[in-house]
C-alpha cells in the first residue's frame, strides 16, 4: 500500500528548517517585543514546527482522509474546549479563587 512506494521528502532538509525555527523562536524570546507579541510569535513558530513534523515525519502528507480526520479532529476539539473555558476560568466576573502566586514558601537557597 502507501508505505511501499512514495516519494520520500528530504527529511534532512525538514530537520534543518526545524532547527532554524528553533533559533528564530529563541531570538524572538530575547527581542524587546511586548509580552503579547512575543507569546504569539513563539506559538506560531511552535505550531509551524509541529505541522512540519506531522506532515513530513508522520507522513500525513500521503495518508488518506481517515487518518487525517483522526489527527485533526482532536486538535480542533482541544481548541474549542480551551476557548469555551476562557470565560469561566480567566474572565469570570464571579469572585472565585485566583491563580495568583503566593510568596514562595521559605526554602533553602
Amino acid at each position: 500500500m502507501a508505505t511501499e512506494a512514495h516519494d520520500h521528502p528530504n527529511y534532512f532538509m525538514v530537520w534543518v528548517v526545524l532547527l532554524l525555527l528553533l533559533v528564530v523562536s529563541l531570538a524572538a524570546a530575547y527581542m524587546p517585543f511586548s509580552q503579547t507579541l512575543t507569546v504569539i510569535l513563539i506559538f506560531v513558530i511552535a505550531a509551524v514546527k509541529a505541522l512540519l513534523v506531522a506532515y513530513f515525519f508522520m507522513h500525513l502528507k500521503i495518508e488518506g482522509k481517515l487518518i487525517l480526520a483522526i489527527a485533526i479532529v482532536p486538535v480542533i476539539l482541544f481548541v474549542i474546549m480551551t476557548i469555551s473555558l476562557l470565560p469561566d476560568i480567566v474572565y469570570n466576573p464571579v469572585e472565585t479563587a485566583t491563580q495568583k502566586l503566593e510568596a514562595p514558601k521559605s526554602t533553602v537557597h
Binding site: Q35, T82, L85, L86, I89, V90, T98, Q99, K100, L101
Partner: peptide, 10 residues
C-alpha cells in the same frame, strides 16, 4: 494555559 492567563503575569 488557563491558569497562566488568569495569573496576570504573576
Amino acid at each position: 494555559i488557563l491558569y497562566r492567563a488568569a495569573s496576570g503575569g504573576g
